[in-house]
Design a protein around this nucleic acid. Structure first.
Lengths: 257, 257
DNA sequence: TGTTATTGTCTCAATTTGAGACAATAATAC
DNA sequence: GTATTATTGTCTCAAATTGAGACAATAACA
């Protein structure tokens, strides 16, 4: 109760100062609710994800955030990802809600706050328990312009198979996101969102292989993809190499639900 | 802010009175977070779900609830479903999080509160915005003992194809649950959770047909199910009818992750 | 003993998938 | 020019899976 009293006091003061939806004190945000996002990119034949490294801590975490009181949940996630990546229309899927009590580890957040020279009293809103709604996002690596947040040194790509250890349950979240991505690989048109608008069949295959973690037979993959009828063939791509040039493809537009 | 002040006052009073985790004033619960559950049962060849009807309103809703501050999210849902159905070890899956601002319709809750003779001041915690985590559950119809909650006349089975109109976005939640159930039909061992421990192949097929909403070819279904190697065959079931008696089957035990 | 409705299994065709063969390039070496 | 090399697009054939029906094996009853 003491926590809530002080929390309220903070909010009152923020309100008086004309602040709104301020990360400083949590005012204007839904309580106890956070999101974390696993942003997948594809580069160099490898599946990558975005991680933040907090100032002076050596702690790594997924990009995440909070939901404003007058904001749709999905919109909040999009807003956060736009801040981090600069991308406006981002492909997003919900993944899982992590809501165990055990994920509440205020010491970790306190460490981060202190390392940033911020006071971390017991009643600080960030030290409260949060349920986290996990999302995964698919982005075209080349379109992304990474921007760390106020608490972080960096927001950078990491090979999904070579991640540092992450705070809280973020490693579990990554595993769940990858698992969901794999399960959705056929039903949602996942491949295209990780590539430029136009791509070769080989590139598309490499995306599938990186996601599934297995090798795929070239001819079978090509037949299957073309058989789906969702690819449009464009002009050839001349790479300058001494061999037949591959066609470029794009995904036919389908209305998003 | 006025809302929050009064909310706090309520909580303080509740605390002083020694109350804890009381639905009356929301004290002891995580804020802004709710869950709704779509409980599937199978009877008479039809897929059914549980609905609550609120006192004196004619309003129907999914069974739902809130998460205590010291309680795992999944445990909260299990607790709520145990109260409603009497079932202890219930099969549960997360479905989707509904977090649009548009689903915040305090008038509806106010109607329900007033119809129950309860005061519904603007700052009542139930009139605040909630994000709802949707679950679906699968239960054996025969094991269920239905119990309405304090605000409801009834908690009853409804044919999934003949639902009354539901409050808020609960119809959307049902649709999403059904869609998820269908998608999970093959990957999770869904069928068995809706049937008694032992069942005939025909009954299992009827479950699949009810979920998918299509007819399935008997011989193909039987071959596929037996081919999975997850069924154990038991003694025959003599129904007293003039025809060959079918075998009973059960699902082999597999460790739950 | 025959009849009826249903079940378990088998068969054969149709379809999909696995695995490789092979001709068609695009640049380079000669 | 012509041969060489690596890669691509398509085709073929076998293997595996699925669709659709045939059929014998019941339980109970007339």
């Amino acid at each position: 109760m003491k926590i809530e009293l002080l929390l309220l006091k903070n909010r009152l003061m923020a309100k008086k100062a004309g602040q709104d939806a301020s990360i400083a004190d949590g005012e204007g945000y839904l309580t106890n609710i956070a999101y974390d996002s696993v942003v997948f990119g594809f580069w160099g034949g490898q599946l990558k994800i975005l991680l933040m490294e907090y100032h002076n801590t050596g702690l790594f975490a997924l990009p995440g955030g909070f939901v404003k009181r007058d904001e749709d949940l999905n919109a909040a996630v999009k807003r956060g990802l736009k801040e981090r990546t600069g991308i406006d229309t981002i492909y997003l899927e919900q993944c899982y809600v992590f809501g165990d009590v055990a994920r509440h580890q205020p010491e970790v957040l306190r460490t981060i706050l202190k390392a940033n020279g911020m006071p971390a009293p017991n009643e600080h809103w960030l030290l409260d328990r949060f349920i986290s709604i996990a999302y995964y996002a698919l982005v075209n690596y080349n379109e992304v312009v990474l921007v760390p947040d106020a608490l972080s040194d960096s927001c950078t790509w990491y090979d999904v198979n070579k991640l540092p250890s992450l705070i809280l349950d973020h490693s579990t979240i990554v595993a769940k996101a990858l698992q969901t991505l794999r399960a959705n690989l056929d039903s949602k048109i996942v491949g295209g969102n990780l590539l430029p608008k136009q791509f070769t069949m080989k590139e598309l295959q490499q995306v599938y292989e990186a996601i599934l973690g297995t090798n795929i037979r070239r001819t079978t993959f090509q037949r299957k993809m073309l058989g789906l009828g969702i690819l449009k063939r464009h002009q050839k791509k001349y790479s300058g190499k001494a061999h037949k040039a591959p066609y470029m493809y794009s995904f036919k537009k389908t209305k998003q639900p």
